[in-house]
Design a protein around this nucleic acid. Structure first.
Lengths: 214, 214
DNA sequence: GTTTTTGCACTGACCAGTCAGTTCAAATTC
DNA sequence: GAATTTGAACTGACTGGTCAGTGCAAAAAC
């Protein structure tokens, strides 16, 4: 058991120290490797090599391989949550409806996945696992993101825009799933298509315009 | 290089030999362990122990750990595809519309995930990875399943039931994602809810009845 | 002069895959 | 029908390699 005192004392978030730059390089190296191969199949030596640092540096900056991964997860989902919230808020500010807000969040989700496909991949791969040390981190972080969608749905029901009958958590999950899977398939199997294209298809589905909306 | 003559001569499919029973036990042991921990983190010793056989038996029945996993994938997705196709065919036979067919397939998907949650979990975790030996197996098998959904969409467009504007592969992905993520969240976070409940929520979403269908 | 990084040798646990040997039910022989 | 043989199925101790994590002295960065 290594002693590693206070990870967060000096420059917890967004610091511009040298250390922060090294950590960023390590995140970037780890994210692609773990997305490709999975956590267990990725070695610390590989991560260090891809980041262009010595192995010792990894352990100078993170207590362990798992801790590196956990902080990576927190970091990534933090970005996503901020982006979703920003999309919802912007729509509200501009006086859009709640469907507009959902639509804006779909786009924000697509933009995120477009920019960080490896992170998304890795996140999906770990999300429903059990018995892993970082499970609780993952749950917390998931809830933060899903809560944004649920909030918009709740507001929509209260404002009379959505049916009272809808099941908020389940509908939120389903919407997230729709975007997630469509986007991952897009990136994996038809990477040449434009974001607007994908967004248009998902919008149509959201608004029930597939089956003519009888 | 071990010599392994004709795997399939005597009782290739559904045979009731002792060997077949052992393989089944190994599949069942492997699927839960790999779903929980991932492929690399799961040891062959663990699989053997949970299946109640000796390690050597694993290697008597499968050329390697990866081969065991690949055959497990093929086996599982085979079941899913058959079930989806059955749902689509049944609806057609009974004179249902294409929306009815999609709805029946959503239910078939939920039933499958309800029965084999571990398999689903493991499948999702591996699907978008790259650089793994079983990647091609996974792609083939994925396409079989998605093709069933695409087929129904295509028929629906031809028959005038769906808009000509829809993007078939993307919409199919999105529908699959909707069911997949909603169902995994259901199993992981609100396992007490009934299948009918979940199905109702997804039906509503499919038919655009969320936003009142203006 | 303090913080951070490097390079590298080392350890101990763990694990995929191997192989010589065992088991036992069915086939063969007498 | 009792004795013997066969071989597919199974066993588990063993091996060779891999990898997370350590330790530390010296260099570099600030």
């Amino acid at each position: 058991m290594t002693i590693r005192t206070m990870e967060s004392s000096s420059a917890a978030s967004g610091g511009s120290t040298r250390r922060e730059a090294t950590r960023q390089k390590l995140y970037e190296a780890a994210v692609t490797l773990i997305a490709e191969q999975g956590f267990s199949a990725t070695t610390v030596d590989e991560i260090a090599e891809r980041a262009g640092v010595a192995k010792g540096t990894v352990y100078y900056n993170f207590a362990s391989k798992s801790v590196l991964f956990e902080e990576l997860l927190r970091h990534g989902v933090g970005l996503l949550t901020a982006s979703l919230r920003e999309a919802a808020d912007r729509t509200a500010r501009e006086g859009g409806s709640k469907v507009d807000a959902l639509d804006a969040m779909i786009r924000a989700g697509l933009v995120f996945i477009d920019r960080y496909p490896a992170f998304t991949q890795l996140y999906v791969a770990e999300l429903w696992r059990t018995n892993r040390t970082w499970q609780s981190t993952l749950m917390v972080v998931r809830q933060q993101a899903v809560a944004v969608v649920e909030g918009v749905l709740r507001d929509g029901v209260e404002g009379g825009e959505f049916s009272e009958e809808i099941d908020i958590p389940l509908t939120a999950s389903a919407l997230v799933g729709m975007v997630l899977v469509a986007a991952l398939d897009w990136k994996s199997f038809q990477a040449e298509r434009s974001l607007d294209d994908v967004h248009a298809a998902l919008s149509r589905l959201l608004q029930g315009r597939v089956s003519g909306c009888r």
